[in-house]
Design a protein around this nucleic acid. Structure first.
Length: 477
DNA sequence: TGAAATGTTGGGGCG
DNA sequence: ACGCCCCAACATTTC
């Protein structure tokens, strides 16, 4: 019987796992995770995701065990580890789902070539996205506008997701493996213990979350997703990032709900959720065609942008002490829960880049470190979008006003009260702009500006003007 | 997936 | 009754 190694990476699930499906059909499967130098480097930068990784591995192993299989864990060079398992298990093939980050792609094709050169079989599959990310338009160019990408995608057919293989046969001998706790001891630290309060990683929980969302929240998603404290998020992003759930499975399920729905507003809501999934694909589309977007602005003139902000200001942004309630609420939510509402991500990011004139790369790195749903493609696209140096992005001169944004999207200040508790007694409208509150109001709310809550780190009107002037310097170059 | 500045219009107070 | 001014309220333009 054919023996195939399944190399797991950011696809920690059993359902709709194309590599696993194919191998299980053909014979014996040997699931492997390799704690390699590349993984160590990647997760040293992405500390929150590291916590998620450990729990995903534990959950995957548990899932495999219910089918009589086991996850084998190796520490070391990826090629060496694969070869070692192949020899131990007498396996001739390695199957895995493709990754699309530039370094991963290079490394994967090198390893595949190495394995093939010594007579091993390698097969790769697409499991992470709705479509292969290298679509081109009629002119043979990458798409530069989201809506045309969206329209194109709606003409294509998403590949049918695979179920969990009914029969999976594991290997009948013990292979050398490290305990998962080998990774746990590194991944679990005092600072991220709090994530347990908010999250439970893994495939089964992800599926449960989806079922709940597709049964209720999805019908209001279009109208409520921008309201910050409406609880209308699907909360699926970390599961998607780690591959605990398949985006194709979500797509088909949402499409079915769409077909069963007649009410127009509800249909539009489902449609706008589908659109968000295409945004995720679009991020990978950009990453495939412009791998430099992780570090370099796509609009080259931004390479010479006159950035100004100080480290001290950067720190205040990170810890949520800017004096702008919505910005501070967002940054504190991120630190505490490992995620941030999408609308608030735009506002906090815009604030860093435009109000403080701090290079977007600094924000990129902080989000990389602290987000449980960190995703290279999404993060790169998002920061370039906000900065105004990316594809189909916000023009630089569109500058979010943080207190108007919170008046619009957190009108009664519920979100601010939750994450900036020292302001919780402040009434509307001052909760959005405490510096304007009369002395009596501040006193009644137990607030001393400069003592219990900081004054604005920069004046909004002045910061806006300064940002526009800075933009003039690179505009048209 | 903006916000601010500037322009236009029309109702109402008032001499 | 009429012109004048003020200023919301809305529209357009500019950043």
């Amino acid at each position: 019987m054919k023996r195939t190694i399944i190399w797991f990476r950011k696809d920690f699930r059993l359902h709709d796992h194309p590599a696993l499906w194919e191998a299980a059909k053909e014979g014996i499967v040997i699931p492997v995770y390799i704690w390699s130098d590349e993984e160590k480097l990647s997760y040293s930068k992405s500390e929150a995701s590291f916590w998620w990784l450990y729990h995903s591995l534990a959950s995957l192993d548990k899932g495999l065990q219910t089918h009589g299989l086991k996850l084998f864990i190796k520490d070391g060079d990826e090629f060496d580890a694969l070869l070692e398992v192949m020899e131990e298990a007498d396996a001739g093939a390695v199957y895995f789902n493709e990754r699309y980050e530039p370094d991963e792609r290079k490394k994967d094709s090198r390893i595949a070539a190495q394995l093939e050169s010594i007579g091993k079989e390698v097969q790769t599959f697409h499991g992470h996205l709705l479509f292969t990310p290298d679509l081109l338009n009629k002119q043979g160019e990458p798409y530069k506008v989201f809506t045309s990408y969206w329209k194109r995608c709606m003409q294509e057919v998403v590949a049918q997701p695979f179920p969990v293989p009914e029969k999976m046969q594991g290997i009948d001998r013990e292979l050398q493996t490290l305990p998962i706790d080998h990774i746990r001891t590194l991944a679990e630290r005092p600072w991220n213990e709090k994530f347990h309060q908010y999250w439970e990683p893994g495939e089964q929980v992800a599926i449960g979350k989806w079922e709940q969302f597709s049964d209720d929240g999805i019908f209001y998603y279009g109208t409520e997703r921008d309201l910050i404290s409406s609880g209308s998020s699907s909360e699926l992003s970390p599961y998607l990032a780690a591959g605990n759930i398949s985006v194709k499975a979500i797509w088909y399920s949402a499409k079915r709900v769409y077909e069963e729905t007649t009410e127009m507003t509800a249909r539009q809501s489902i449609n706008s959720f589908l659109k968000q999934l295409i945004w995720r694909d679009f991020a990978y589309h950009q990453l495939i065609h412009y791998p430099d977007i992780i570090r370099l602005p796509l609009r080259k003139q931004f390479a010479e942008f006159p950035w100004k902000g100080s480290n001290e200001q950067l720190t205040k942004w990170k810890v949520g002490q800017t004096g702008y309630p919505l910005v501070d609420a967002g940054m504190r939510e991120l630190w505490e829960t490992g995620v941030m509402h999408n609308r608030v991500r735009m506002v906090t990011a815009s604030f860093l880049v435009k109000h403080l004139l701090i290079p977007w790369g600094k924000g990129y790195s902080w989000f990389e470190k602290t987000l449980l749903d960190f995703d290279t493609a999404n993060n790169a696209m998002g920061w370039q979008w906000v900065t105004g140096c990316g594809i189909d992005c916000a023009p630089y001169f569109r500058i979010f006003n943080p207190f108007l944004q919170s008046e619009k999207f957190d009108p009664d200040g519920t979100y601010i009260r939750k994450w900036v508790p020292e302001l919780s007694r402040l009434p509307v409208p001052y909760i959005h702009r405490p510096w304007e509150a009369p002395a009596k109001v501040l006193e009644d709310a137990d607030i001393q500006i400069g003592v219990t809550y900081p004054p604005p780190i920069v004046d909004h009107a002045a910061a806006r003007k300064r940002a526009l002037l800075a933009y003039q310097e690179v505009k048209g170059k």
